[in-house]
Design a protein around this nucleic acid. Structure first.
Lengths: 134, 134, 134, 134
DNA sequence: GTGGTCTAGACCACC
DNA sequence: GTGGTCTAGACCACG
């Protein structure tokens, strides 16, 4: 479970942590029944206050993706994999859609937007294999 | 000068207003020498606190895109058109880039991301003529 | 908006605060569109840390019962009244059901449980008018 | 001595185990002089950490309901039956009372609470004979 | 003025 | 060891 929190944009830290956990579940880095990294451990790894991690975990519990095992830790709920996968594509779709939408509201001609889109998608190798993730 | 502020995502209102003004300048809806809508008028139209509009205008002045005309209002500065145009493509590029970047960090396979990208670009007519805007 | 937090049983404070707000909405003490008491004000009234109130409010937002009005406060969402009312009867039903269930699992004869039930319901006037609440 | 720990609500496991033992004593499933199930056996049966059972037994000893017999196990103390019986009705009364109290604080009209009370008491046969238990 | 985020640290219950 | 609750206080963004 390696998590990198760089590329902060302004989203709260706890939200980004929660997202990372979701994506880890979607990618089966974390499987149902396994324990999520402990609050203390993860907070140390990320150099973040334990409360911040705890809040992320709390949100994940509220969504039913993690469930507490008393005195032991937080366990990935059964069925979480599928839910995280669909959440993941919705997340991606949402981001791309609103970016495109914003671009259009800008008034910039469609052809130019499309050109930028291709450039940016190309950056870093558009079709670089993204291993097994789904 | 019609502005629609819907689709709030969490960006501050004053920032979105400022953007709209910039895009209007880039699209020559507002030309150098013309007056920007008054704070009162715009705040009424947008159903927003006048302070909020004032702050947007303050930022635009700080960027040198609007300049005060004593006792009259704020006028679009000369040279604003070009600067807003380049700002516009940078804005668009930035949004698209970070959306794509985020999509990749998700772990979703590149092929799937690309598919979504095409779908979303297609929505609403990908190449719909975006009139004169550049 | 008077709230009394006495009768602590072990339930977390923030949860009890959230419940009180819900019941206030159910009883139309707080109506859709109105602002909930501010975090600072309520925390002062309850002699509780502001964060504790904030957490209660956060949970209520997650349930869609309160919604933020930027820079202004938290407003009761439309439709909250009905949702809180049904939540209220479910809350009451749940409590009573599990208390009864527990009583039975105790092995105590039904007749005795029923006797206690009558006694306890009678305490404080079983049918005391509970004003308008529904 | 069959114990079912389902219906966890948040009460600690060790507490629920202790309660079950008490009720078994009250119902004379376990009589003074008899041995309580061994920690190992019970922990295996309940799929619970042995420490958890041990703690329940520790509490029961502290209350004088179980007493150690060297090299043999824990036996039900004399006089435990009566004490468990009164503890049982107090337990039941306490639960019902606080559930009713909470229901009232909800603001739900008394008539509605009473209706729910009758429904829930009816569920499963309000007066089903609860065999010998008292 | 409003809420939101984050930090720091104490204390508790549970296993 | 685990998570959960609560406190205290700083700082920020928004209107």
């Amino acid at each position: 479970m390696l998590i990198d929190l760089s590329e902060s944009d302004g989203r709260p830290i706890y939200g980004r942590i929660a997202d990372r956990i979701k994506f880890a579940i979607a990618g089966e880095v974390l499987r149902p029944g396994e324990l999520a990294p402990s609050v203390r451990e993860l907070s140390k790894q990320l150099v973040v206050n334990p409360n911040t991690v705890a809040r992320a975990y709390r949100d994940l519990q509220a969504e039913g993706l993690l469930e507490p095992v008393r005195g032991t830790g937080l366990q990935v709920a059964s069925g979480a994999t599928e839910r995280c996968r669909s959440a993941r594509v919705e997340f991606v779709r949402g981001r791309l859609r609103s970016a495109i939408e914003e671009a259009r509201e800008t008034g910039l001609p469609g052809a130019e937007i499309e050109a930028i889109l291709h450039e940016e998608w190309g950056r870093g190798g558009g079709d670089r294999a993204n291993g097994k993730g789904a």
